[in-house]
Amino acid sequence: MTARRILFAALFAAILVGCATSPSDDRISVDASTMLKSSFKARGQAGLDRLDQDDTQRLCSEAAGKTPPREVAERIEKQNLATIQYPADGKLVGDWKNGEKIAQEGRGKQYSDDPAGPVGGNCYACHQLAPQEVAYGTIGPSLYRFGKLRGYGIEMQRYAYGKIFNSEAFAACSTMPRFGHNGILSEQQIKDVTALLMDPASPVNQ
């Protein structure tokens, strides 16, 4: 009886998996993971564990550059929202001058980088921020006048801080790194970048 129930459960699970994606596609995903593992070597601070995907990375890879189905997107956003840690002291806005330096700094976490730092956010690689910096990328939206356009209130501060901490909490499969969740930037660094966006004196808001 018990054995039969387990068998049924196993069959049912197999049917579910079969429905989700075609078996051959699953097979290729497995082949790709295996191939990646044998094709990279650890170097500097970048170990092979960086090829192990978490749930979000796996689901977003499966979405293949497109927005995932709604229920998947909601699951990703819910999971990531739960990871956001707001500062214990309640202060979300740090020093925008430091924030600007962090936004300019492209180094950090590459195998060619010194593990002792510096580690930056490299925000300008993808976003327009302060208008004085003309060498900005366009992978992300322009954040020029971020606070001025949206208001400087506590809710917007929490959104900005949270978005930098874990972007996947607000837009599933965003291209933006999860700076706090993945330990790229420290709490103080995230406060400073939040200030770059939210301090009325920041060049971003002029």
Partner: peptide, 9 residues
């Protein structure tokens, strides 16, 4: 389309 590493890239 494989995303991974500390930056999810």
């Amino acid at each position: 389309y494989f995303r991974g590493g500390p930056h999810d890239f």
